[in-house]
């Protein structure tokens, strides 16, 4: 059963295991360095649908179905799903899950949603409230541009600090009694909202870095660990600017150099030099796609043994941003191990 460790960490003593995962991405992501790791790379942004929103929901559903299939289960076996995306009213998740008939919890944590969902699904599996629970998220470059920025065909220049929303989805199936040798969720930490006064919606990495720093520091304090105790501290998705700032914050606040063990999904998913993505990638689908493909596969193989996955989200509202409000951010941590 989950036990509180220190002030913020929840230790999951029954080792809920991530028995299967799947990632489905769009065309640009399919040209990136991790294309071979994804379960499927679409070549058409519309995925055969008539709107960007429907396209995203199809990708979301596809990731979930593939994960269920890989786990050797059917949707009927799944006790609950924690899903989220960036669109208003979580429509990509809702439409994606409409026909699957699984008890559904819609989450909003912006780009941190995968970590939040994974944490909650693991908690449910740990307490045996669920035999099988799913965490899934999605985002789509075009639906996000349409909702948060400009129409696609509008000729705007992007700031060098801007991050590109990933077209993609990831889903993970967590089991209360998975086999030994599969990665398990050791502990989770639900983040606190941080806002150091960043207003620039084209610099989300800067808005999120303090939340990531706070969550990582809280996690290390409660567990008595340092950067050396992890194979990988994986943030998602701070991009280039946020990564620089996080490392600086860790150095100034804790006198700790995390650069040797730290990587960021927003930098990993694209080729930063060739793919013209400015400061990197973002979106709920970014960390989900990287985690549910490459990272979990490396954990399964034993190449990685303990990964502190820190999902970071800029809880940005265009309305409040126009009212001159700053951008509140959050980061949730999930420690995934395999030993």
């Amino acid at each position: 059963m989950a036990k509180r460790q220190g002030r913020f960490v929840l230790k999951l003593e029954n080792k809920p295991r991530i028995i299967a995962s799947a990632a489905v991405v769009g065309p640009k992501e399919g040209q990136g360095p991790h294309s071979a790791d994804f379960d499927h790379c679409h070549t058409d942004d519309y995925v055969g649908q008539e709107s960007w929103e429907m396209a995203e929901s199809v990708i979301h559903k596809d990731a979930i179905q593939r994960a269920i299939e890989k786990a050797g289960l059917t949707p009927l076996d799944i006790d609950m799903v924690f899903a989220g995306d960036l669109l208003d009213q979580e429509i990509a998740s809702t439409l994606g899950l409409r026909e699957l008939n699984i008890p559904y919890v819609g989450l909003f944590g912006a780009c941190s949603t995968m970590a939040l969902g994974l944490g909650l699904a693991s908690l449910m599996a740990d307490t045996s409230a669920a035999n099988y629970a799913i965490a899934s998220t999605s985002s789509h470059f075009c639906s996000a541009e349409k909702q948060f920025r400009y129409p696609l065909a509008y000729g705007a220049q992007r700031s060098p600090t801007a991050q590109r929303t990933v077209t993609g989805a990831g889903a993970a199936v967590i089991s209360s009694n998975g086999q030994k040798g599969t990665p398990y969720v050791d502990s989770i930490l639900l983040g606190r909202i941080r806002d150091l006064g960043i207003k620039d919606a084209a610099n989300m990495g800067a808005a999120m870095a303090p939340a990531a720093a706070t969550t990582i520091i809280d996690f290390m304090h409660d567990t008595g660990t340092t950067a050396d105790d992890y194979d990988l501290i994986l943030t998602g998705d701070l991009g280039m600017v946020g990564t620089t700032l996080l490392r600086e914050l860790m150095a100034t606040r804790e006198n700790m150099d995390i650069s040797k063990v730290h990587n960021d999904c927003g930098i990993m998913i694209f080729d930063m030099e060739k793919q013209d993505v400015h400061a990197g990638a973002s979106g709920c689908g970014c960390s989900a796609a990287i985690l549910c493909s490459y990272i979990l596969s490396e954990l399964k193989k034993g190449n990685l043994k303990n990964v502190l996955f820190v999902g970071t989200g800029a809880l940005m509202s265009p309305t409040l941003n126009q009212q001159g409000e700053t951008i509140p951010s959050i980061a949730h941590a999930v420690l995934i191990r395999n030993d």
């Binding site: 220049q157 060098p160 150091l196 006064g197 960043i198 800067a206 409000e325």
Partner: peptide, 25 residues
């Protein structure tokens, strides 16, 4: 309109951000 409700404006961090953010060419 300035952010009236947010008391968290951290000047040191905003300066740090300024330095870490590349400018447009």
């Amino acid at each position: 309109m300035a952010s009236k409700n947010n008391q968290n404006q951290d000047k040191a961090y905003l300066e740090m951000t300024e330095k870490a953010s590349p400018n447009s060419p």
